[in-house]
Structures are given as C-alpha cells and as structure tokens.
Amino acid sequence: MRSNNTPILGGRPHAFTPILDAANQVILGKPTEVRLAAACLLAGGHLLIEDLPGLGKTTLAHTLARLLGLQFARVQFTADLLPADITGVSIFDREHGGFRFIPGPVFSQLLLADEINRATPKTQSALLEAMEEGQVSIEGESRTLPSPFFVIATQNPADQIGTFPLPESQLDRFLMRIELGYPDRDAERALLAAGSRRQASDQLSSLLAPEQLPQLQAEVAAVHVSPALIDYVQALIEATRNHAGFRHGLSPRAGLALLSAARAWAWLTGRDMVLPDDVQAVFGPVARHRLHGAQGGKLAGRAEIDALLAGVAIP
C-alpha cells in the first residue's frame, strides 16, 4: 500500500500515470493528495480542498485542469458575490431586440471556486445546486452544464475571520475533502529554490484528449467490487453509526461515494478490483467532512478515523 516497490497485485501502468507524474513535478511533496484529487475527478465527484492560504490549493486545481485539458474557469468567492455572478445573466440585446444569455463561469468543465466559504450562503447554494443537478435554472429556463463538470472548491478553515462555513448538507455534495498541509522539509526547499509554482503550472500542456476522460471514468466505474468488499464497506458504515464519538453515522450516499472513490483509487493503483486498502486510503477524505463530533460542531479528526479503521475487522 503506502510504499510498495514491488506491488503484490496491480501496478499496471494506465493513462493517468504520466498525468500524476507531471502534477507531482509542480506540486512538490504531495503525491497522496494529488492522487486523491485525481481519484475524485475520475470518480466523477467534486473536490473540496481545505487549508490555510498559500499552501497550493489553487495551484493543484489549475494543474489538474491544464493536464486534463479541461476548459477552466475560476471564481474568487467574496462576501458580495451574487448567484448570477456564477451562473450567468440575461441581458437585453438592442440589435436583436431580445434578451441574450451570458453564461457565467459555471459553464465550464472545471470550475475552481476559490475560498468558497467567503461567499454568502445564497451564493454558495447556487453553486452547490449546479454541482448536484448538472444544470442551472435561470429565469425559469434550465440550462445544462458541460460534461464533464468538476468543481474544485477551496476554503479556509472556518475559524478564519469573515467566513460562512458550509452547512453539512452542502458538504455532502463534495465526494472528498482533502487538506494539503505544510510541505515537508525537502519539498519546501525545492519549492523555495524553484520559485512560484503557478508559473510552472501555466506552462503545462494537456496530456489527455477531450474524449478520453469519459472513457476512463467508465473504466473506473467497471472496477470489480466483490461481495466481500461490500461487506467491509457496510461494516465501516455501521461502525460510524454505532460510534459514540460521532453525531451521525455515514449516509447511504456516503457509502456509494466511498465505493466509487475506492474504485478510482484501485484503478489508479493499476488494479481491476477494489481491495480493502483502497477503501482505507479514501475513507478519511470521503468520510471526515460527513462526520461530526458528538460534542461540538467540529469535523471528525484524522486520529478518530484511523482508530475507526483499525477497529473494524476486515471480513
């Protein structure tokens, strides 16, 4: 699992191998997080990156967009951002004598919603609805979003000043939530020496043809899940529901999210079947933002998740 030179199973190279390598050239010292982000996109889910400013959240989103050849848009969320600033507006066109729709940034394949918790809940929910439905309704008319459609949202931790924390129901819309954290010593040194990473990511070119991503997503969805593995996922979900430290357990939707994320992780490992290792690898990112401590409103901690994984026997 973590560092296996000769994998016992899998290890087959796949279309994402060069993409991950290239991304790791830009985002230094964060291979696991890069891989989780890739898994999230492959599973067709949206990604929430949460960390302090300046740790490379935006760079990660930008890098993935470049490498995957996705049409990219970026919205900086602020307290005065309106829903229409995201979805688009209809304006009166004098020449044609009618209203013309100007699509907002949401009509792109990869939308980077920077610092989503700085916007008001009204604006947040406009985006989240678009994420869920794959379409937006503007002035009574439904407009379909492009496909594929990913949202990578970043947010500062909620204890920063001037933020509107996302409510639980909206957190659930994100397949994964990851934290980047500080780079380790070597990576930081390399980063300091090489200068800004944003420029490096601007120079990347696409490694994937536009029609390839949906095919790969279909491959990921076909990764085999055996009954024994479903038993394990069930055992994990039940453990969160019976856990005294959590206010609520995981929902069935969370269970499905866990499986599809595990499939993507297995595929990225070069396997055509899901192992408990894959479930464990994605369990934290998938489950943590869906679990809340019993006392306060804080999300489940990394240590609690690790203890849970260690305590649930693999059937």
Partner: peptide, 26 residues
C-alpha cells in the same frame, strides 16, 4: 493480522520484520 489491517498492510509489516518469510508469504 490485526483486525483492521489489510492483507497488503500485513504483507508490508511482514516484509519489514522478516524479508525472507515475506517473500514466501507474498
């Protein structure tokens, strides 16, 4: 193998402790 330990994690632990045995256990 510990309850929550995956077979692959178990194999990795074994490799760290006794590479010769691990080669036969893999």
């Amino acid at each position: 193998c510990a309850p929550g330990e995956t077979p692959l994690a178990f194999a990795a632990r074994l490799r760290a402790a006794d590479p010769a045995l691990a080669a036969r256990f893999d």
